[in-house]
Design a protein around this nucleic acid. Sequence first.
DNA 1: TTGGTTCTGTACTTTATGGTACAGAATCAG
DNA 2: CTGATTCTGTACCATAAAGTACAGAACCAA
Lengths: 194, 194
Amino acid sequence: MARPREFDPDTALERAMQLFWSKGFEATSLDDLCDATGLSRSSLYAAFGDKRTLLLQSLERYEARIDSFVGGSLDRPVPIREAMDAFIDDLIDRIVAGPGRRGCFLGNCAAEFARSDREAVAKVRHGLERIEATFAAAFERAQARGEIAADADTIALARFFLAAIQGLRLVGKANPDRRALEDVKRVMLTCLDR
Amino acid sequence: MARPREFDPDTALERAMQLFWSKGFEATSLDDLCDATGLSRSSLYAAFGDKRTLLLQSLERYEARIDSFVGGSLDRPVPIREAMDAFIDDLIDRIVAGPGRRGCFLGNCAAEFARSDREAVAKVRHGLERIEATFAAAFERAQARGEIAADADTIALARFFLAAIQGLRLVGKANPDRRALEDVKRVMLTCLDR
DNA sequence: TTGGTTCTGTACTTTATGGTACAGAATCAG
DNA sequence: CTGATTCTGTACCATAAAGTACAGAACCAA
């Protein structure tokens, strides 16, 4: 062992992820990344490999975070409908206020890489499936509590909410209008009443 | 008047649009555009202005086309639920088969330009609102026919389907799995039964 | 035919990009 | 203290990009 690192890789990755999330992969230059992380090119490359590898690591980081965020939001001692309502309301608040306007990092990467990077898309799919499973688990618990019809298909519901929320966030980018987004939310939530 | 054009601007724009739709704006180079259209740089610039202007024109072209496609799909002599089912099934078919995997051009641009190009986003919003209106009109007609509950909010329904379909197409990019997408469709359609 | 005008293709310029080389600074083991 | 080793910053390289200049081809009017 010799000279130790002068930076914290964890915070550097966090900053890189935030930047990729906000600007997308192509639109983020290495200079941008160096500015945001405070690292020089050499340190960046030594620590994380090239730009694309850094993106893949950012995706993994995001996946873990978003999944635990979703899980935490839905695993509260309130009816599932109430929890979902609050969860989506929170998303809408952030879209309208601005910071949520950058969408979901997974969704952004799905849009950007669908045709060009199979490995990145595989990571995105993995992340989406994980969120889907988290939704499904919450719906199953709610079903056991009698809050969702016993014959409801919780997997289908999970897939639906996954897609609908991606759509909400995407549409919100172009039209961050609270009323419109709340209309979407209201109809979405009726799918739990059955 | 002097030397006439050797190309058809309409087909050139069509090809440019297809390319932007498939690859996105940043990832499409001028060389790509010249290859696809068969034009030289000079002709491209003289006819359409710079790359960004060409994208904006592509957006307008797409908007008109997608709106008339949606309108045509929903304005058939069948119950609205059946028409929506067929419409979404068609989307799913294309996603699974491949060509639909590039998503909706409006959605792609929403994702790519949300933060970087207000004018492009305004065009996207305009297009989305137009589709929303087309959905709403179809739902109102269906409501008048008694196929949708008289107290249903057709605007909210339109906004919901707009977002949900964007979500379906986005998720389909990362995971073009027919069963999963049909699950999403099935739950979506229940929102018309009320 | 001819002259003015518009179109087309090539070659170029400028700028920005991702990635690398390398010299020197900082550290720890012995 | 010393020297091997790892880290950091600067300078650099090659490439690709968007956009432009310009010469010459194609056309129409007279």
